[in-house]
């Protein structure tokens, strides 16, 4: 087996250390060594967006990064968005309110992507929303609930000054 490289990064505010070959993807590190199984793998080639996480605040595909590249970085996964165990992030709340999910497999990637999208575009038009979330695939919802949820989250986050 190839060399194991020591890894250390901040995941959802906590220091996570591990070991992995250079080829270990960030997604696999997060799932297997940082207990972030909300990072889903829908394609492993960068198209579906299920594996989206924030790296130093920016939404990225964790299947297209090697864990060693994120050494020292700050990672936020879907598990790290809600402020506490009883409260949902406004985007998560909106997905629930608007039926933005069915099987839920695409949901973590969408939630992280939408949170990042709204950060950069606090007041998007419907057209902007549809293009903004087009980097994530959902096979269940037909996107109706997801678009509605993004609209709702935008309004809530603007209202509370969260973006």
């Amino acid at each position: 087996m190839a060399d194991q490289i020591p890894l250390s990064m901040t995941v959802n505010g906590q220091t996570r250390r591990g070991l992995g070959e250079a080829r270990l993807t960030l997604a696999d590190f997060l799932r297997e060594q940082a207990h972030c199984t909300g990072v889903h793998l829908g394609c492993e080639h960068g198209v579906c967006g299920s594996c989206t996480v924030l790296m130093d605040g920016e939404a990225v595909r964790s299947c297209l990064l090697f864990a060693v590249q994120a050494d020292g970085a700050g990672i936020t996964t879907v598990e790290g968005l809600a402020p506490d165990d009883e409260t949902l992030h406004p985007v998560q709340e909106a997905f629930r309110d608007c039926h933005g999910l069915q099987c839920g497999f695409c949901t973590p990637g969408f939630v992280v992507s939408v949170a990042a999208f709204l950060e950069a575009n606090p007041d998007p038009s419907d057209e902007e929303i549809r293009h903004g979330i087009s980097g994530n695939l959902c096979r269940c919802t037909g996107y109706q609930g997801i678009v509605a949820a993004t609209r709702q989250a935008a309004a809530v986050m603007k209202g509370s000054g969260q973006s």
């Binding site: 960068g46 967006g49 989206t52 939404a59 990225v60 595909r61 990042a116 087009s134 980097g135």
Partner: peptide
Amino acid sequence: IGHFQIRNR
């Protein structure tokens, strides 16, 4: 080019 997540990297 792609999507904003792609352009971030």
